[in-house]
């Protein structure tokens, strides 16, 4: 039975995908589209270059001329970065540095927690048959339509005051104010539906033979998950990690709501928002701050992209 579907699928797949793939390839490799792609790339990159150059120019230059003037008078300085990171500029509290640390301390765990939890949930829902697993998966799927804004106030209330019916305490108030924990928990919760859905779809497609062979060899479910499923799911894990990292890193709403903007726990976007309010005309400070917050996601993207591409290649060679 399984054999039939497996072989049938294998046989029909190349026939179905080959013409479209070559069609798209041919269209993409024509000289005209190459020029178009180059053009779009340049148009897309120029503002980023402007951002970088502005952040490196001295204050007076920025105030007087546009960034393209740099090509005529190339004066570069790292003073803006020093100002924005450590001085905070012009007597207003301290620099971005503590917020940068906060952002990392929030983003890294808020990326790892949902990946760990969701990959385990996805394995269980995809490979361990039990009554109600379809229902649970459906609930996860359906939860994606709930906007996270709806949960902000109740969740904040739950963290600070606990949950009570009359005098009965269902959930005690936990003193997590000023720590990172409320942000971690909130981000993890909001990420779970999409994470479980994405990873489930990937993990359910893994070859049955590999998993069953390990099971029959006597591997426990946890063992199969760790030694077979996780390595095979690396491309999916990496792509979800990139999405989640970028989302949490750039997030202002959740970070601001659950930290109250306090310097000891608030992430960088909340400080950048303040900066653009108070230093709207100091472009050299704002661009330096913005570039700091661009660099780290770029590093994450390029370091994880390797796994991403490798996974895609491995799949195509095997098929």
């Amino acid at each position: 039975m399984a054999m039939l579907t497996r072989t049938e699928r294998k046989r029909s797949e190349p026939a179905r995908t080959a013409p479209t793939r070559t069609g798209v390839r041919r269209a993409l490799s024509s000289p005209l589209s190459t020029v178009a792609v180059l053009l779009v790339t340049v148009v897309w990159t120029v503002p980023s270059l402007g951002l970088l150059v502005t952040s490196l120019r001295p204050e007076q230059d920025v105030a007087q001329t546009g960034w393209w003037d740099f090509f005529a008078h190339p004066h570069l300085t790292l003073a803006n970065y020093h100002d924005v990171l450590f001085n905070g500029g012009f007597g207003v509290s301290d620099g971005l540095m503590p917020y940068l640390v906060n952002s990392l301390a929030i983003t890294v765990p808020a990326t790892i927690f949902p990946i760990v939890l969701a990959s385990m949930a996805a394995y269980v829902l995809a490979w361990i048959p039990f009554k109600g697993s379809d229902t649970i998966f459906f609930v996860f799927f359906a939860l994606q339509v709930v906007p996270l804004q709806m949960a902000l106030v109740p969740l904040l209330q739950l963290f600070s005051g606990g949950a009570h019916i009359g005098s009965l305490t269902i959930f005690p108030a936990v003193g997590m104010g000023g720590s990172y924990a409320p942000v971690w928990i909130a981000h993890t919760m909001f990420a779970m539906p999409l994470a479980v859905f994405l990873l489930h779809n990937f993990i359910a497609q893994l070859p049955r033979d590999l998993i069953e062979a390990a099971r029959v060899d006597g591997a426990s479910h946890f063992r199969v998950f760790r030694s077979v499923v996780l390595p095979l799911a690396t491309p999916a894990l990496a792509s979800f990690a990139i999405f989640q990292f970028l989302w949490v890193w750039n997030d202002l709403l959740v970070g601001l709501t659950f930290t109250g903007g306090a310097p000891e726990s608030a992430p960088m976007p909340s400080r950048l928002a303040q900066l653009s309010g108070s230093f709207g005309d100091h472009w050299e400070i704002l661009t330096a701050g913005a570039f700091v917050s661009v660099v780290i996601p770029l590093v994450v993207f390029f370091s994880l992209q390797r796994y991403f591409v490798r996974g895609l290649l491995a799949g195509s060679v095997k098929g």
């Binding site: 070859p207 069953e212 062979a213 390990a214 099971r215 029959v216 030694s227 390595p231």
Partner: peptide, 15 residues
């Protein structure tokens, strides 16, 4: 899972 069973498939279950 039955004890003392091994499987061999059409596709080799190699990692």
């Amino acid at each position: 899972i039955t004890d003392g069973v091994s499987f061999m498939f059409q596709a080799d279950a190699l990692l």
